[in-house]
Amino acid sequence: MELTFYFAAAVATLATIMTITRYNIIHALLYLVVSFLAVAVVFFTLGAPFMAALEVIIYAGAIVVLIIFVIMMLNLTHEDVDKEKEWLTPKVWVGPAILSLVLLAELAYIILAPDTQPTEALVAVDARLVGMSLYGPYMLGVQLCGILLMAGIVGAYHLGRQKKKVVHRFLQPKEERSAAI
């Protein structure tokens, strides 16, 4: 279990690094799927098998597929990949990367420095407990999530709507139709 965790963690980190350094979006998304799958393995080793399943289904399945559909609608070409290469110069990324790495080093120091906790065995929290908690004390949160999803649907429909430019000839106004004939 220990070894599984460390391998999955290494894969997740490497895949995420590959994701954020790709120029081609589809390649980045493939690495992103690998990263999510590795994180799902980490969830499994942490004793949360139901969450691992949800991670695969929703993150690696639904969300990535949604992004792929949008990329297909955008009709990107090689020019965009070249432009991306032009945008991502070392001058642009070195500064933020170093600053963020300093933050990460601080976080690592805080987490790893004190080593006084007692050893305990892994106890899995199964889906039944989660469900009991979800529909018990967290009932209000579930309802708020429902409202959020509803707002997401309505918002996505409203924002994604485009004015129709080409109309079927039966739907055109009468004078235009006669002019076309």
Binding site: I58, A62, V125, S133, L134, G141, G152, I153
Partner: peptide
């Protein structure tokens, strides 16, 4: 179980966020 409950909420939020975000990108 609270941590996993929070993860479900984050998952829901991520799904709603990505749909609205992609519509904005379009």
């Amino acid at each position: 179980p609270d941590g996993q409950v929070m993860f479900i909420f984050i998952l829901t939020m991520a799904a709603a966020e990505v749909s609205v975000g992609l519509a904005l990108i379009l």
